[in-house]
Design a protein around this nucleic acid. Structure first.
Lengths: 252, 252
DNA sequence: ACAGACGATGAAAGCTGCTGAACGGCAACT
DNA sequence: AGTTGCCGTTCAGCAGCTTTCATCGTCTGT
């Protein structure tokens, strides 16, 4: 394995982990710890990570400061923040991205803070978390404001979503099983279907507890999703099911 | 487990817990209590937590939001709140009302809290002020979020406004003189023109300092307004000018 | 095709700094 | 005042870091 490839792999690993120790890196990359250390030096100079005793930590734009206001009530579990980081890694500078509501998507939003993006969202908490960032151009959908979830809904929201095109949509979901994606909130389903329709890539974020569950309202068949990001506790049969449908599965 | 990783885990644990005792930390992190104590020292220096006897408590983030609101309410002068009360009296239960952005309009919004209304607004601060009220149905326009004024703008906003009808619009304004209403913020003008077009009654709220001023961008001729609400310090010639155009003038 | 230069790699040596255990002191509770 | 439990300090041991060097593969010029 060449140096450039190792460094790429290290970058990827840091998308889903806060910290990696040198020993693990050496083993996973099949290289000596000397080489790993050299790679870490280079990546540190590039600002990708920070070297610490025992390994390296990923240098994130402190989500604890940039985004906490929006999600102060929603305690982010470890799993969700790992999913967030991994999903955020799928988005590249300059893209237009639709963000659905929901706490898992909010976790992704926090990790997008360092990128230059055009974000379209119907979620007020997410908008509030991102609005102060100069590198993010923020567009809200219109619509009725649901006071419980603080999400914009209804025909105006759908109409506006129908008028745009996006590189990707990042969407949370109530339940996933072999029959497809589903949700329990009746009102958001229409907007979510529109989001899927206008986005070139559909990225579903869902922790492992969402699998096997069927929500009340079907949203879309499995084939509508291009990428599913979940956590390591996802049972293998679900991974296989998704891959059978041609869906990329990433586990944080 | 390395020091850096332990400290990250401690940070995460404090996201969901206010207090952690040293013994639990030592067990969960698989490290000696000595090491845990050292970590806590470091994290305390970084301001993440505060050490207490038996463990550590998370240090709550100072709410910068409260500062914003404080500034806003200080700026809300006696005149504006009187104008707000008077203008709110023009609105009846059950109506659909469009609210423009701006601090004077925000003063009106505060006085609308007791009524049962359907409010349409492009202002995030106003939406945040009203969203918790059960008697108010709230619809936001879509559009680009202007980070400075926190108002939704642009073609999506105008398109959505064009699709609705309202009983009234309550609008602040940058300047009023014999040539009409004008504003200094280029971007909001298009939305304001739409609001005027779709509302049955156009209610302009403006303290007396706005009169005689000409803003950079013309918004509408005087005749577009149906009611102007100002304060008692408004000079009589302006009252006469407005009445000559068939506009009702109310002085708070 | 061959020789030399260059960069990358892994191993070894020496050093730095982290770790856990032990111990005395102090705070909290009875 | 006594007991219990927690804290800060100290120190030996060791894991990990840096530096150095020999080796190997690749590239370049002749």
């Amino acid at each position: 394995m060449k140096a450039a490839e190792r460094q790429l792999r290290i970058r990827q690993m840091l998308e889903s982990r806060d910290f990696i120790d040198s020993e693990t890196l050496g083993r996973e990359l099949d290289a000596s710890e000397s080489s790993v250390r050299r790679d870490l030096d280079i990546l540190e100079q590039e600002g990708v990570l920070r070297r610490v005793y025992g390994g390296a930590v990923s240098v994130q734009v402190p989500p604890t400061r940039a985004f906490d206001y929006a999600v102060e009530s929603v305690r982010l579990s470890d799993e969700k923040s790992r999913i967030g980081r991994l999903a955020a890694g799928l988005i590249e500078d300059g893209q237009t991205v639709i963000l659905d509501g929901g706490s898992t998507v909010a976790a992704v939003a926090g990790q997008l803070a360092s990128k230059s993006l055009h974000i379209v969202t119907n979620s007020l908490p997410i908008a509030e978390g991102l609005e102060s960032l100069r590198n993010i151009e923020l567009t809200l959908t219109g619509g009725y404001l649901d006071p419980r979830s603080r999400v914009l809904l209804g025909p105006f929201c759908e109409q506006m979503l129908g008028a745009i095109r996006a590189d990707a949509v990042i969407m949370g979901i109530g339940g996933i099983n072999e029959t497809g994606l589903s949700n329990n909130n009746t009102l958001v389903v229409g907007s979510e279907q529109k989001m899927i329709a206008v986005a070139a890539r559909v990225i579903i974020v869902a922790d492992h507890t969402k699998f096997g569950r069927g929500g009340m309202i079907p949203v879309a068949p499995l084939a509508a999703a291009h990428i599913v990001v979940s956590d390591a506790a996802l049972r293998p049969e679900y991974v296989a099911m998704l891959r059978d449908h041609g869906i990329d599965v990433l586990l944080a």
